[in-house]
Amino acid sequence: MNNAHGTGLYMDHTGRLHRLAAHSKLVGTLGFVAAVVATPREQWWSFVADGVIVAMVAVLAGLPLGLLARRLTIELPFIAFALLMPFVGNGPTVRLAGVNLSQAGLWSAWSIVAKGTLGVAATVVLASTTAVPQLITGFERLRVPRALTAIGAFMIRYLDVVTGELQRMRVARESRGDRARWLWQAKAVGAGAGALFVRSYERGERVFLAMESRGYTGTLPSVRRGDEPRHWAACLAPAALASACAIAAWRFR
């Protein structure tokens, strides 16, 4: 496995959305997702409108829709869960193709799939168009405590280093014939995890030493650079539209 974890879903190219300020995009995405979650599930047209909004934003961002669809697969386990709902739900049922399905179950399956998919789609658009350093800057601008953004930045910086070590240890272990089939044979996995922790911790200590050597005294520098344009209007538009849909949906219920 050679994929870099340190970049997440980010796509390195310069679309319109890539240039918008990260903190505005974060607030916009959160607002959009909140509006979707707050929409009553019976007003299906509202979710269709939300879907059109995400798709339009993705097209504006220059994201191939096929790629967006592929990244939605992360949700599959929940879709499986949702599909169980009509079979385990209570209350009145409808007969479909000879099977009794719970009406409430069908509604909840629909809404889990619809809301979950829209949520993942919105997050994927954010993650694909915002580089990790920008995301961290964005959090700083939103007044998230520096210690927290710094921990996040450290984690992302060392994700590939640590997962790379894990991978090499696993390959080395299996190269020596370790193939456990049962839980009680997994002692090597535990030993490997232990060794990984010791390595990670000692690296943390060395990183701290190297920081101290460069004059670190406990105050981390802000990663903020010069002023980015804010673009609040552009970033909040999808959230505003989705909120309008949600309000309309409540009205016409």
Binding site: V132, P133, I136, A153, F154, I156, R157, Y158, V161, R203, R206, V207, L209, A210, M211, S213, R214, G215, Y216, T217, P221, V223
Partner: peptide, 25 residues
């Protein structure tokens, strides 16, 4: 001091920010 493992030394999100860390301190 330049440490043996550059991964111990480089911890900021970008190269420029990392180089700025020391002088900013």
């Amino acid at each position: 001091i330049v440490f043996q493992d550059p991964d111990d030394q480089l911890f900021m999100p970008t190269v420029g920010q990392d180089v700025a860390f020391g002088p900013a301190n």
